[in-house]
């Protein structure tokens, strides 16, 4: 067997597909491009959201292979808490939150979250049950003599 020489470009491609860090770098570059586009067009959307739609469109139309961003995106999303926890340290500069205001906010979060979760599950459950009933009905009318 003769070994075919691997071109440097192909080698770089292979390294890139395995490297989460390089893919993150490309995601950052894409975000930078979107930031420039948002500033230039005065689009009211955040650059990240514009980039999200661009990437979804690109993946769906097969302009972009998922393998180009797969590892980088998984890396960023797996460690998402690392990127916003530093902002939460700001609470040390807001002593007023450790008094009544903090308790009020905690109460608002607890009550609000229960309401959000309860209403969401209720809507989804009602919708799914309605569609199951509709399905059963159409099945029953499609085969009326099946049991006779």
């Amino acid at each position: 067997m003769k070994k075919r020489p691997v071109s440097p470009l192909r080698k770089l491609g292979l390294v890139y597909r395995k490297s989460a860090l390089l893919q993150v770098a490309l995601l950052i570059a894409l975000w930078g491009g979107c930031q420039a586009a948002v500033t230039a067009t005065r689009l009211p959307l955040p650059a990240g959201v514009l980039g999200f739609f661009v990437l979804v469109l690109g993946l769906q139309r097969r302009w972009i292979a998922p393998a180009l961003f797969h590892r980088g995106a998984a890396g960023l999303l797996d460690h998402l808490s690392l990127f916003f926890v530093p902002a939460m340290v700001a609470l040390i500069g807001k002593p007023e939150l450790f008094g009544t205001l903090g308790l009020k906010l905690l109460l608002a979060v607890v009550v609000g979250t229960l309401l959000v979760m309860g209403s969401t599950v209720l809507v989804i459950d009602l919708w799914l049950r309605a569609s199951l009933r509709a399905e059963a009905k159409s099945l029953a009318s499609a085969a009326p003599s099946a049991s006779s």
């Binding site: 950052i28 995106a73 530093p86």
Partner: peptide, 27 residues
């Protein structure tokens, strides 16, 4: 916090690119 943020902002900066990364699970 202002002192801490001079280093920590590099993490917060990555929230933008992370928003784009949500395209992969959606796909």
């Amino acid at each position: 916090y202002a002192e801490y943020f001079r280093g920590a902002r590099w993490f917060v900066f990555l929230l933008g690119p992370a928003t784009i990364a949500f395209a992969l699970p959606v796909y």
